[in-house]
Design a protein around this nucleic acid. Structure first.
Lengths: 337, 337
DNA sequence: GGTTAGCACTTAGACATGACGAGTGCTAAC
DNA sequence: GTTAGCACTCGTCATGTCTAAGTGCTAACC
């Protein structure tokens, strides 16, 4: 029993099963792939594969289907990433090059990726740990209510209304704005918590209280840019692959809606810094995704933010991985260095 | 054959069917509701209701289920809006009162509404036609790239990066900022297109070109606040009521993802200015929603923006309508006059 | 006239049965 | 290590039967 052929058999099983959604038997296998041996031999190989937990038979006399472990081996060792077609590459380029605005880019990205793969696509907002304060704006909405806007040099804008606890005039507020801006422009968002106390201390005593509130607000804004969000598209594709989720797609939709779950999942997949990472079925930390796989990769500076695809374990991994990788590359290029 | 009783029978059928998801027969009806007549009589009534197209029998010898038309009559004439429980009212109040930020309020609203109704909840961003310019900010990102921020007095912030087509210094940009701000502060967003040319004209000739670009950008920002967006939650609830969508929930998910479809739908439901509006099954203009109903109502100033719920036609209309109405009221109150 | 009882009729759904075919595992031969 | 052959196992499908639910209709009733 040759080891290479066994892997070949596993690959054939995965490919056929992904293609047909039907358990694949030994006979069909020798017919569809020219393996040069008889079905009986394949049967032996399959028995071995089953012993190793790579494939399983849904019932006594049906073909075999890959297990999570089988997919894992397939992804890690067997599959070659398929290059995208010329047309697909061009589609990516065209679609993503239209826009300047971050929200818009991410929106387009997920739409594209979900169309490309026929799965659910997700993209995480880029981490802003390296982002710097570009601008700070205070706007008086009411005597005590200040709309605070924090603009990062990445183009990201966050705003919040803050109750400053004392009545302020326009002039006082303008003074505070100048003070904060002078002191903080160019500061990294991640260093804001350390930098803020000094600004408050430098403030004239009568405004100290308001400055304190504003500083707290800015701190919160900075961390809410650190706090991660995501965009998603293609949930309707889930319904199409309904059959692939024996239970129901309910838990999957729940997981997707609980963005926290997805975000944790994506960031835990950080490991492989170049190339895409795959999390298969029960490998996922979240129970609702026991029958789903996630294919993701980093993009942008430091590959810290993730873009990826979620679908049934019975997924065309090579193609999906290629699409995710390609989209991530274009995304990195567009968002700049 | 008494007319009032016939309506009573229709109501009983709707209620039972919504409750049990099973076609309801004449015998079960007289048992569950004390109608004071025998099942044979009910059969006659049911035959009449069927002739009028209000109920239908899925097959020869099963009970009857309501048609879209039947639900319509039920909603319009029979059902009384159920008041929410004290606990529910308090939950609404508590949940919505925590936050100041518009995005956050809407987010909480949909979550709440989807939990309250066990359906998909959607809320449209408020129209900003009455909103006024509170503040304008230009930030130089690169010699020709200006981040333009438009802040409305509603707390809404829109931003975009604009290529001004000529190199600008910080001072020049500050001048432009002052000019725009002086001229436009307090202007209604809806009047911006008319107001902008004058500002550009007032600008010193050497900066005319940049001013033109910025004006175009502001116009776009204002219309992108007019351009409507929505927030949604509870898609997982769809999967739970899987059974109620005989075909598949696919088309429904598609409709939800194509926000344009939902937005058009919501705005077309504008008619009834007070009270909730219901669109049932095939009444919906979009084919994918042929088995779904939408319950919506306006909120905020002029009740122009909509908040609502989408679910299967087999839905508990009275309760859903009550929840939508209550949430819309609290929402209006929180967003102020 | 509206209401009722009774009965024949229809049908979905549950259940059993058996033939079929795909696929396995094993053994003995190559 | 590979192959052919064969007995065996099950899921699937088609078929048939039975039951419960429910209808429509007719004739009697108030």
């Amino acid at each position: 029993m040759s080891e290479p052929r066994k892997l070949e058999v596993l690959r054939a099983i995965v490919e056929d099963y992904v293609h047909s959604r039907e358990p694949v038997g030994s006979k069909a296998l020798v017919e569809r792939h020219h393996l040069g041996v008889s079905s009986a031999t394949i049967r032996n190989d399959m028995a071995a594969l089953e012993d190793e937990g790579l494939i399983t038979a849904p019932h006594t006399s049906a073909g075999r289907i890959p297990t999570d472990k089988g997919y894992r081996l397939f992804v890690d060792q067997i599959s070659a990433v398929k290059p995208l077609s010329q047309a697909e590459r061009r589609a990516i380029q065209n679609l993503l090059e239209g826009s300047e605005d971050l929200d818009d880019v991410l929106e387009r990205t997920v739409r594209l990726l979900s169309q490309l793969t026929n799965q659910v696509a997700v993209v995480q907002y880029p981490h802003l740990s390296r982002a710097m304060v570009r601008h700070i704006e205070f706007v008086l909405l009411a005597p005590r209510q200040v709309l605070t806007v924090l603009i990062a040099d990445t183009g990201k804008v966050e705003q919040r209304v803050i109750d400053v606890g004392q009545e302020l005039g326009d002039d006082a507020l303008a003074g505070l704005r100048t003070l904060f801006l002078k002191s903080l422009a160019g500061t990294r968002l991640s260093l804001l918590p350390q930098a803020l106390p000094a600004v408050v201390a430098a403030c004239e005593p009568s405004l100290r209280h308001a400055a304190q509130s504003l500083a707290r607000g800015l701190d919160a804004l900075a961390s809410s840019t650190r706090e991660e969000r995501m965009v998603m598209a293609g949930t309707a594709n889930l319904a199409r692959s309904n059959v692939d989720f024996p239970l129901s797609i309910g838990p999957v939709l729940e997981a997707l809606e609980e963005q926290v779950v997805m975000l944790r999942l994506l960031s835990e997949m950080a490991q492989d810094p170049r190339g895409v990472t795959v999390s298969i079925g029960r490998e996922n930390p979240y129970d609702g995704l026991a029958e789903a796989s996630v294919v993701a990769t980093g993009y942008g500076p430091g590959s810290s933010a993730k873009v990826g695809v979620l679908g049934p374990t019975r997924m065309d991994y090579p193609t999906t991985m290629a699409a995710v990788r390609a989209v991530a590359r274009y995304l990195s290029r567009i968002l700049g260095p």
